[in-house]
Write a protein that binds this DNA or RNA. Structure first.
Lengths: 212, 212
DNA sequence: GCCCAAATTTGCACACCATGCAAACTTGCA
DNA sequence: TGCAAGTTTGCATGGTGTGCAAATTTGGGC
């Protein structure tokens, strides 16, 4: 007869799908509560209740409320840098980063990332968690750079570059978030800012000097 | 009539001195415990006991163990960027940052910062806290840059530059920490790395391209 | 030296977090 | 259909962080 649904590989299995659904249900519920009660304005019990699971189950999926809230950020960054390995090996790094970070970001997703970023201003725990997510992304980027750059480059310069790139990404996102307060996040806003800031990274910040 | 000093006299009052002493006693005790039991290997009760105070008093000084542990980092960064305002107004920014960040760092202090940084690898909470401390420093730097750069510069570029500078500082520290595993932290190691990475920031990372 | 107002420390209570454990329950599959 | 493996859940436990008020210390005026 017709073959059963896809094999129980990573993403095909029924159980995997269920878990994935539960995960998103939880982080969605968390976001919803954060919108109404503020980032730090609700407890795990409330969240578990909202998501329709038990308190204990929540902790099977996330170690903290903040982790549930920053999950979209984590997924965005992980997805972006995973693409880095798919790009042509001879493409200049800056271009590759621009293409992956600024690539397929939907307007909706961008708005979500900005919203979560903004929440971090109100809640130190959330801010810290978000910083860690970006930091993890930076480490992934460092690995990627190691592959793409001549072996002769020192760790110092590679790590500096990775950090600077991430900093540009953050700055671009902050700028986009700032513009977003007045509604409707411009789709290309993030990409545009990213292009400008990374461009400055290419040619050097010396032109920013007062005596430019 | 004796001129009443404002209750919150900065440094002269006896009470202020006592509080300062208690603060350092606590963070010293925290460091000591972290060395013997690992960063996440002890409780507030143990720490309070070690520092000779009550659990409740600990929370009067720090909101968490991690905050006590990262206090030296915080002080270093705050001290460094406070100096930024004392530097000649016409000095190029990069030079000013180099002078403040790499200025009066004792070998001893440098070793401490590296040690705390390394502990962050073992404890996510500590890592997050440390990231936040650096992030706070970055915000201070942004303010400083606003003053020192022509008014015409966009927030985007200023923030990108601040983030990139901080990233270079972190990379330099990581490099120094990596060298330190074999004891004896070279005094000028941090400064040396800082000089290299910030130099790259000046002239642009384009020269790192594979086709350099 | 004595005393007091202000500052600081402390104990206690309370709500919440995070995790191990084992019992209940689903679920996929032969 | 039945069962082994996976998942959810309740319970217990130890730890965190904070408000509150009582107790204690401290600096300084007299």
């Amino acid at each position: 007869m017709t073959s059963e649904q896809p094999p129980s590989a990573d993403s095909g299995g029924r159980r995997e799908l269920n878990k994935r659904a539960t995960r998103t249900a939880i982080s969605t519920a968390a976001l919803s509560l954060a919108r109404t009660h503020g980032p730090g304005g609700f407890t795990v019990d409330q969240l578990a209740d909202e998501a329709g699971i038990s308190r204990r189950t929540f902790f099977n999926y996330f170690p903290s409320i903040e982790a549930a809230l920053t999950r979209p950020v984590e997924e965005f960054l992980e997805g972006a840098f995973a693409q880095l390995y798919d790009r042509p090996a001879d493409e200049p790094i800056m271009d590759a980063v621009l293409a992956t970070l600024g690539g397929d970001v939907s307007q909706e997703q961008m708005a979500l990332l900005c919203e979560i970023y903004a929440m971090g201003e109100d809640d130190p725990q959330l801010e810290r968690m978000q910083l860690q997510v970006w930091n993890k992304a930076q480490q992934k980027l460092e690995e990627g750079l190691h592959v793409r750059l001549p072996r002769s480059e020192s760790d110092l310069l590679i790590n500096s570059l990775a950090g600077a790139l991430i900093a540009c990404g953050q700055a671009a996102m902050r700028e986009a978030a700032a513009e977003t307060v007045g509604r409707s996040p411009d789709a290309g806003s993030f990409q545009k800012h990213l292009l400008v800031s990374i461009g400055m990274l290419r040619t050097g910040f010396n032109s920013l000097s007062k005596d430019s």
